[in-house]
Nucleic acid binder design. Sequence first.
DNA 1: GCCGTTTTCGGCCCGACTGTTTTCAGTCG
Length: 571
Amino acid sequence: MDVSHISTIFEDVARILELKGDNPFKVRAYQRAARTIEGLGDELESLIKDDRLTDLDGIGNDLAEKIKEIVLSGRLRYYEELQNTIPAGLLAMMDIPGLGPKTVKLLYDQLGIDSVKKLQLAAKAGRLKALEGIKEKTEKNILKGIAIVRLGQERTPYPFIYPLAEGFLRELKSLKAVEKIELAGSIRRRKDTIKDIDILAVSHDAPAVTDAFTALPGVRQVLARGRTKSSVRAGEFNTQVDLRVVEKDSFGAALMYFTGSKEFNVAMRRLAIKKGYKLNEYGLFDKKGKRLAGSREEEIFSLLGLTFIPPELREDRGEIAAATRGSLPRLIKFSDIAGDLHVHSDYSDGAVSLSGIAEIALARGYRYIGITDHSQSLKVAKGLDQSALLKKRDAIARLNEQHKSLRILFGTEVEIMADGSLDYCDDILKEFDLVVAAVHSSFKQSRTQMTKRVVSACRNKYVNILAHPTAKLWGTRDSVDIDMDELLRVCRDTRVAMEMNCNGQRMDLNDAGAMQAKKMAVKLAINTDSHKPADFDGMAAGVYLARRAWLHPQDVINCLSYDELKKWLKK
DNA sequence: GCCGTTTTCGGCCCGACTGTTTTCAGTCG
């Protein structure tokens, strides 16, 4: 069962109920259930079998029945009945920033507007001003909002957004009025993709900071300018950047609040209430309104009986319960990484020579590096034929003699052909220290075909790592259609590691995928897929992503010592 | 729709900003 099918239905139900002005808490119950289900993966089947759905937080008898109905029939009658009560276009209208259920309903009831297209025409014609509560400004904002949606409000991969955030941070830090400044929001949680950048500052002169912020180079549009909060759009992706200026005494509470996630905050506030406190962005308060903590996050966690929860984990995925028990995992750190197992040299489409790669690896403190050039059929990337392989193997042997503290692995990123065979025969494959297998063509195969194809490649006894398992390329190509559960079962049995490819365009597997792999006892490999020197820096984003997936160094093969890794690679 | 060391009914996270009002509703995070 595809859990996202269920959560999509629940999310839609929530939106329709919202539009109809139904009980907001009922709306939230559906939203919460959608999230809970999404995080389940293949556990769902056993929960249904054992009749334990209501054990889940936020799932009562009613929602349990609805989940079962979807699993059994693929449909939900209640959802279909709801859909018949409103025009489909209204849901799309709710995606426009600044437009919520109330306004959409007003537009529909009063003017019969039931699509984004009609809304745009009406706004351009100035017909919205006829409505109560809407004047010139709102009409303009709606048109702007439509343009933003049209532009594609897509999230941008973390590695592409981080430089803009860092630049803003640096500029603001240099201001005299700024006493303290930190990134917050999803960028502090190191999500794989980012929608907007949140910055939090302490200052005795908030207006000065706000003025400087809205005038920074790179700012394209000022969206809001308040006493404590201002927003702009900036950078090549037209990213929204929000700046908040807060008091020193509430910096920790504000940092926690603006770091989120939203779901984490809601759960934390619920916990605070349960303990007789009130938590907001100004601090943790007792019943009489006395502030008990606020300047540091650590104090708030501690007063609530929790160990410090790293930002990467703050998603309400069980981290609060774990912190209560003091059993948060020892997360992987950058210093645990002993090597990179997927990089390209100038033998194929990389820009760096073998010895250049060795130097980069040494400079980063790695113990080993896997040089995995493309295989022969990938002509566009100068894939290596047999004679080139021999040359490369000798060159690597010589390099290994020169370097004592670094082991260089003779590897390949071998093509998984459309029929599931590999681009080198077994006699060649057995000569490599490291075999990374990957799909780079025929992406449109059916789910059955694609699953069969990749599974068959992973069953080859020389394959060690499956590179970028979903083949998704940000902004270019969607994930391939593949039965991930089946694939993970095979990889567990054949001891093939799943890659967390941290190239900015890929981020594949992402944290959700890696969590699923870990649940199935499949090892991960965090690799940069480097083609040029700067790419090696991607490892940081990869480690953050692995932390978001709750990964321990033991889950990741490139945390192994060289001897352990050699043993692991030999099947 | 969910949930219960106040409760099986009556709560459910909380505050800032905008645009419209002239004290507030809607939206957002």
